[in-house]
Design a protein around this nucleic acid. Structure first.
Lengths: 219, 219
DNA sequence: CAGGTATGGTAATGTACCGTACCAGTCAAG
DNA sequence: CTTGACTGGTACGGTACATTACCATACCTG
């Protein structure tokens, strides 16, 4: 609660969460350099000492915000298995989850800021990539390897194919949302989008009717 | 005075270019807010008056930099036709060009900064999208429409399919380069990457062997 | 060569902000 | 009630920066 009037004392954990929430709004909206500690404090009241006691300095607050936002949003990716009998169903479920994660406000915000700040916080960028797009691609590659072992699909490099699918799911749609050119897709839009991407990934635009030398050749 | 050689007077056009080049290095490396006019001037000598006379203020310099960088890098997309007899060849050529553009230092820099600054410069973000990914997708959609009219491919929504392909070509590779986690791909790597993406886009990972309800359905 | 204009170098002005210090009020324990 | 740790509010030191002002000098025009 952002009571401008004499904000009550808050327990440690609650205040930390409030700081992070306010920091997310400002950092992810304005960017790291353009964000002032005062602007964050204005949103929750209290003293700057709270921030400096809890996070040390501005960098500490930012890194904590990015890592925790990313960890929270991406937690769903790392743990669960993907149910579904056919590869088509598995990929559809995977796509739905990945798209939902990518379009979540938290991760959109992380994307917005990590791009510019990757130079200033290289380890943060690496951590984000490994836990996010990297892990997604890795998990997907495992699924594809299994299908390949079953002789279900024919691709040379499963990891590269996984990257391709992750890229398809990120797409111009994701870019438009990040740039603020359109709102995140509705559930129906997301479903149609995922179905379309998975359809092409599985069957190609030839739809299995045509044949012509694929020209695939790993470097 | 041991100045950098009392920077000689430069012609209007040359100095403007020098300012933009130096601005690109600093803005695209540090981001808009973290960049100081002094840091730009240090790289080329001269007086800050040059910048303020030519671009008005910091915002003017930044918008000029982004629009001109984007226009230059993206010019190749809008003019030329794509030679090639088969759809496969056309898409391969398209993919090579698009990847080369996306990986060019100028556009990598634009990506890095536009993400964070889209909130501050909405019209800049819109212009960038329309002239870049939007136009690429639009051009590609035309190609697909033609192929569809010839009965060569079977897809419902060519524009969405075009977005998917553009997304595949952007991919985790592009993200890694933006985040500074790896250098841009070599020519051979790029060629293999494009061939792989186009192969999947055309034939899918089933390779034309399997059939199962595509489930494609425009929203 | 004279006069004007634009430029290089630097200083000045006003503002914003990080990080810290201080003080008065608040909570919790004894 | 008293004590002490913590916190809200605010002010401060030091710095950096955007933008403007100033002056001496280089170039250009006549």
């Amino acid at each position: 609660m952002a009571t401008p009037a004499r904000a009550k004392r808050m327990p440690q954990e609650e205040r930390r969460a409030a700081i992070l929430e306010a920091a997310a709004q400002v950092f992810f909206e304005q960017g790291y350099a353009a964000t002032s500690i005062d602007a964050i404090i204005e949103r929750i009241g209290g003293s700057k000492r709270n921030i400096y006691n809890e996070f040390g300095n501005k960098e500490g607050l930012f890194t904590a915000l990015v890592t925790e936002s990313a960890d929270t949003a991406l937690a769903a990716l790392s743990v669960e298995r993907f149910p579904g009998r056919t590869l088509n169903e598995i990929l559809l479920e995977f796509g739905r989850r990945l798209l939902a994660i990518y379009m979540s406000p938290a991760l959109i915000g992380v994307y917005r800021s990590i791009m510019t700040e990757a130079q200033r916080f290289p380890e943060l960028a690496k951590g984000f990539y490994d836990k996010g797009p990297g892990r997604a691609s890795g998990r997907l590659a495992e699924v594809l390897e299994e299908a390949k072992a079953r002789g279900e699909i024919r691709i040379d490099d499963c990891h590269r194919a996984a990257d391709h699918l992750v890229g398809m799911l990120r797409d111009n749609l994701h870019l438009q949302v990040i740039l603020g050119l359109r709102p995140p897709p509705s559930r129906a839009e997301a479903e149609a989008f995922v179905a379309s991407a998975i359809g092409i990934f599985l069957h190609g635009i030839y739809g299995g009717n045509h044949r012509s030398a694929p020209k695939e050749r790993a470097q």
